[in-house]
Structures are given as structure tokens and as C-alpha cells.
């Protein structure tokens, strides 16, 4: 029992807790974006595109500003970076969307959607890293 207690209060245990709490926030945030996009009757591809671009921008900033910095809380990257932003963005849904577009024979989108997501996601992450790294 004391072992279990000491495990849950260790740095590792508290980091895991921060990741889990952030993961809940990120997943709910993504679901909220899906709901909003759904309500506007836009194609749901837009919700995935949006969360992935936005999450890449903010994660770039957070990593450049806080990763390995002594002035930052040791729980900031686990909570915000790994938890919230990791869970807010998604690769599994992205992959199945591309697969479904290809299966439907919609080649324009089957190529354009992943190309656009990756180009915008990369530029967003780059922008975030530049902002976060500047003094």
C-alpha cells in the first residue's frame, strides 16, 4: 500500500497524471470542434484539418519555449504538450479519412487533403517553433 502511494506521488506518477488529465481536455476539445464544424454543415474533413493545424502551431510554440528549460514546470510539457495538444490532434482519423477518399475514387481530395494537411501542419509547427524560440 505504501508502495502504491509512493508510486502515485513520484515525479513519474505525477507526470502520467498530467498526461492523462491533458489527454481528456484535448480529446473533449477535438470533439467540440467536430460538433461546431458539423453544425456549420461543412465537410467533417475540415474539423480534422483544423485541429491538426492549430495543434501543430501551438505545440511548436510550447516545445520551443518550454522543452528542457529550467524555468518551466516539469509538468508543463506532459500536461499541455503530450496531453492536451497530443490528444487534440489526430493521426488515426486522418489516415482513415485519406483511405476512405481513395476508396471512393475521389483522387483529387485523396491527394489534396493529406498534401494540404501536411503542408499547413508543417508550416504551422515551424511558425510556432520560431515564435517560441525567439526571445
Amino acid at each position: 500500500m505504501t508502495d502504491r502511494l509512493s508510486l502515485s506521488t513520484s515525479i513519474t506518477g505525477r507526470r502520467r497524471l498530467a498526461v492523462a488529465a491533458g489527454g481528456a481536455v484535448g480529446a473533449i476539445g477535438r470533439a467540440a470542434v467536430i460538433d461546431v464544424v458539423d453544425a456549420t454543415r461543412l465537410d467533417l474533413l475540415w474539423s480534422t484539418f483544423l485541429v491538426n493545424a492549430l495543434g501543430s502551431l501551438v505545440l511548436g510554440y510550447v516545445v520551443a519555449r518550454h522543452a528542457g528549460r529550467s524555468h518551466s514546470s516539469p509538468f508543463l510539457i506532459p500536461f499541455v504538450g503530450v496531453g492536451i495538444l497530443g490528444a487534440f490532434t489526430t493521426f488515426s482519423l486522418f489516415s482513415t479519412e485519406v483511405l476512405e477518399l481513395a476508396r471512393a475514387g475521389d483522387w483529387l481530395l485523396a491527394i489534396g487533403y493529406p498534401a494540404g494537411s501536411i503542408a499547413v501542419g508543417f508550416l504551422a509547427a515551424l511558425l510556432g517553433v520560431r515564435f517560441g524560440g525567439s526571445k
Binding site: 484535448g26 480529446a27 495543434g55 497530443g86 490528444a87 490532434t89 489526430t90 486522418f94 494537411s117 508543417f122
Partner: peptide, 10 residues
Amino acid sequence: GGYSTFSTWM
């Protein structure tokens, strides 16, 4: 969705 990640990849 929570398991996979796009932002870390980018």
C-alpha cells in the same frame, strides 16, 4: 484520437 497524434509528428 487521444492515442495518435498529428502535432507531435509535425
